[in-house]
């Protein structure tokens, strides 16, 4: 998004969304509430238990907060891909192809979901709370990790979004299927992966690299070893995983668009 043209597109979108001030405020607020209510679930459970998947309440809240920010970012930039079936059906995607810009950056910038800022905001507040309640031996690297991990997680979840929605180029009615992967990843990454059964973990933590969004970085921050036996350095490589995921998602998108234009099949 280095090109000024995308900055301008986004600025224009932001301006137009802000023009419905009341509805924007309400939707922003409901994002905050959604996030808060998901937190309530964790808190309710912890009125009955002391640990979930081997982690205490503040540790789980830490993972939840990082996942929340990551999901908010992903939704912010990639969430509008949910509307891809509408774009394809109405022919609007053809108009996207008629402009001298890449199709994916255009899709991401043309209807940016600014209200998702509410979710990011709620996540940041929760993260601040969690960080003051868990024991972390702070080092400069860990400070960097706290900042980078949610961003890298956002890139990972955004990549998941791109791949899941690309499937619409083949199966136009697959929106709900895509949602189960995107929103499902959002839900999955909010909890320690130790609570999930093997099959689910294999799919959502490693095939879809959900474990790198919040779980492994949180372990590194906490200085805890993985009950499932992953090496200690794994919490530091989420930016690398994010790069790989983004590269894969980009390639997959190009492949999907090629199919749409008629050379991919």
């Amino acid at each position: 998004m280095a090109e000024p043209v995308y900055r301008k597109i986004i600025a224009a979108r932001v301006r137009s969304q802000m023009s419905y001030r009341a509805s924007f405020a309400v939707e922003c607020l409901s994002q905050v509430i959604a996030q808060a209510f998901e937190l309530v679930v964790i808190l309710v459970l912890f009125t009955r238990i002391n640990a979930l998947g081997g982690f205490g309440v503040d540790e789980v809240v830490l993972m939840f907060a990082i996942a929340a920010i990551a999901f908010g970012f992903a939704d912010l930039v990639a969430g509008q891909l949910d509307d891809l079936p509408t774009f394809i059906r109405s022919g609007t995607f053809d108009a996207v192809l008629l402009r001298p810009l890449g199709t994916l950056p255009q899709m991401m910038s043309t209807d940016i979901r600014l209200r998702r800022v509410g979710r990011v905001f709620a996540g940041v507040v929760t993260l601040a709370y969690a960080l003051t309640h868990v024991n972390i031996d702070w080092t400069p690297w860990k400070v960097l990790l706290v900042v980078v991990a949610p961003l890298a997680g956002g890139v990972i979840l955004g990549s998941v979004w791109v791949v899941a929605c690309s499937v619409c180029f083949w199966l136009i009615e697959s929106r709900e299927l895509a949602n189960s992967v995107t929103y499902g990843s959002g839900a999955f990454t909010s909890y320690p992966i130790t609570v999930f059964s093997k099959g689910l973990r294999y799919l959502m933590a490693y095939v879809v690299p959900g474990a790198f969004v919040a779980y492994y970085p949180s372990l590194a921050l906490l200085g805890r070893s993985d009950p499932l036996g992953a090496p200690g350095w794994i919490g530091w490589i989420s930016p690398l995983v994010a790069l790989v995921a983004a590269a894969f998602a980009g390639a997959f998108w190009r492949f999907a668009v090629r199919h749409y234009r008629g050379t991919g099949s």
Partner: peptide, 19 residues
């Protein structure tokens, strides 16, 4: 598609609650 989504979310919710 709806059925699949429903089952996926069921699995995720069941995992957390049963844990």
């Amino acid at each position: 598609a709806g059925m699949t989504t429903n089952v996926v979310f069921g699995l995720l919710r069941a995992a957390v609650l049963t844990a």
